[in-house]
Write a protein that binds this DNA or RNA. Structure first.
Lengths: 369, 369
DNA sequence: GCGGTTTACTGAACCGGTTTAACGGGCAGT
DNA sequence: ACTGCCCGTTAAACCGGTTCAGTAAACCGC
């Protein structure tokens, strides 16, 4: 019984101990029907006694597949997890990968490089979240030729994608707010996690609207706000990481800068709830003094006080669809054509929005300025 | 240029195309200083032209390490992600693994078996979350002989562990509530995610208190409640999954069963916020009619209305410590002795707790029953 | 012009499995 | 007794890298 546990036993050790070939041991585990039952039993017995487990890496190498899929994010994981959105997305992805017996590997930049991380990743396919055209390594990632499904990113012809109608959702939110009579609207945009606005890159220079999630939502907001005659200067757009704290800080900052919005359009529920908290600090009553609209419709929105008016997007389903698309693609031998899914958003009106307050006591009313 | 992209190019293809040996190609990537600079450049040029990337699995097999660590959870990932606690824990783990260049693999039961998932996992080590003694596969997991750090689980001599003083934290919460004069206390315990109570397994049969997180917290609560003369029957303990919805449903259920607590001790912040929402449905004012204490001190607790009184535990740091312990253990050649860290908890009093309401109009006062 | 050291590169072993083709022995059929 | 077939098992090739030991050529000093 006093085995010298110097190194992990390998298949050859088991074979020797059982007096059979390596092939027989392999069969005992993977094709028992090819062996006489008692031989298979004996081999398995010896294997257990020796504490043998097939080496998963060797198995992968031989099988030419890893039974693992990756979730790729352009941000460090510590940032990714700080955004509650991610948990629901991952819930969706994992529910289908798990069902099909796949493991889940998180892929985030390795020493600053996403490409390096991707090259090191032992996966059969990747679900890429929020990878936009402006990413510096985009070309290398494209070339990696790993089966990949893009989520919340501009579709590439060669890869399937899952998107959500961000623009329409955002427009609905803004129309709702305009319809309630609001004229002073603050937009809180997402920075970093999930979407990267990078407003002053791109060929057109200046304030270009790229195709990131943030950009699409912003376009949706503006498409309702501008026709209504509201002027949305750069001053009335603030940017924050998509966390509770981010939203709180962003609203307080705007307030200190002298902004006095009667409505807030936040690009995520986390931001909205942060703004809600900030408004409590400032003794603003929501929705009486201030209306707030979120985006995502995470469960937490139902649990705030007041419950949050928000744009619903099927976060979980986005994850599910992406995973399904990826697994389907892996199953299909030949290069099956890329598919592009566009999921719907819809406005969910709860109780964080109401008619704009009468404009008494606030600046001049009517003419001027 | 019209390369036949039948299969992924391998090192031998590059070697042939460049007119060198496989070894030279390998050196060009990993030990360029062993080659004449122009040779190395030429090889790399050919590699790029062919679109060659070293096969990560082959590399792992040869290197005998994966540069990946696993996070093991006894629940399916879709459940794990539903518990907001996990995101913060993962944030902690990933912040240190990332810094050391390790990838992160999520390990959850595969077709019902954790052992199977663990056997398939290509990791150098594992952080196991909430794995308690009663887990049916505990023996097999122990035998797996993968470096492992246990979190929120009874420490094993052979593995390092990170725990939190759940019992003291829970006691502090209960003492707080008792000190405020509450006599009717409802306990909402965690089921499933993170901790598995499994109350009627175990050698002692019946309602045994094992060593799961739930069990330790329960013991903490009782150690303050019982000396104060409160009777805590099984009726005043309800169980729910550690989610917002779980907490809401649990409180409503208790209320329908006729329970009229003046205080709630919830074993997680998610549960507490769910209960808070339920109390709003029931038109109970918190903290005037009902006091609520959470556990964890997640950021969301600061953003509820009223802000949540809760037991702080360093969730992020728990993840960090576990990852650090694991990586230290991997670094040390010999079997370094297991370390056991016990982190502190502390009560954070915010505004969801207040003195118990006077007992007028509720049942009989004074004598009897 | 010779021994000794570098330099630049290669051949082969190795990591630990899976799988294919083949092989020997026993048995049935003629 | 010989052919043909099936069964249980095995030898060897393969997956795609890394690395160790070794070698041939160039360089060095004397």
């Amino acid at each position: 019984m006093q085995q010298t546990r110097l190194r992990r036993p390998r298949i050859a050790d088991v074979a020797e101990a059982a007096g059979v070939s390596k092939a027989a041991v392999s069969f005992a585990f993977n094709n028992p029907e090819r062996l006489k039952p008692e031989t298979a039993d004996r081999i398995r017995g010896v294997a257990i006694e020796l504490g043998y487990r097939p080496h998963p890496v060797a198995r992968m190498l031989s099988a030419q597949r890893t039974m693992t899929i990756g979730v790729l994010t352009p941000q460090p994981l510590s940032q990714v997890f700080a955004n509650p959105f991610f948990a629901y997305f991952a819930e969706g992805v994992s529910s289908v990968t798990e069902e099909h017996g796949f493991g889940l590997l998180l892929i985030s930049p390795l020493r600053g490089s996403l490409t390096r991380a991707l090259d090191r990743a032992t996966v059969d396919g990747v679900v890429a979240l929020g990878l936009d055209e402006n990413h510096p390594e985009i070309e290398a990632i494209r070339r990696a030729s790993v089966p990949m499904v893009l989520v919340d990113a501009p579709g590439w012809v060669e890869h399937s994608s899952v998107q959500v109608d961000d623009e329409a959702g955002a427009r609905a939110a803004a129309e709702h707010v305009v319809g309630l009579g609001h004229r002073d609207v603050l937009i809180i945009a997402v920075e970093g996690p999930v979407a990267n606005p990078s407003p002053d890159e791109g060929p057109n220079g200046g304030r270009e609207i790229g195709e990131s999630v943030t950009a699409r939502r912003l376009r949706g907001y503006l498409s309702a706000l501008e026709p209504a005659g509201l002027e949305v200067g750069p001053g009335s757009i603030v940017v924050a990481p998509a966390t509770f704290e981010g939203g709180e800080a962003a609203f307080l900052r705007a307030w200190e800068d002298g902004l006095r919005p009667t409505a807030v359009l936040a690009m995520s529920d986390a931001l909205a709830i942060g703004a809600l908290q900030a408004s409590r600090h400032l003794r603003l009553r929501v929705p009486r003094d201030l209306s707030i609209v979120g985006f995502d419709d995470l469960p937490i929105g139902r649990f705030s006080d007041p419950p949050l008016t928000t744009v619903h997007q099927p976060v979980r389903r986005k994850g599910e669809e992406a995973a399904r698309l990826l697994l389907d693609g892996l199953g299909a031998k030949a290069g099956s054509p890329a598919q592009h899914r566009m999921l719907k958003t819809r406005l969910v009106v709860r109780r964080s929005t109401a008619a704009a307050p009468a404009r008494i006591g606030r600046e001049e009313v009517g003419v001027g300025e």
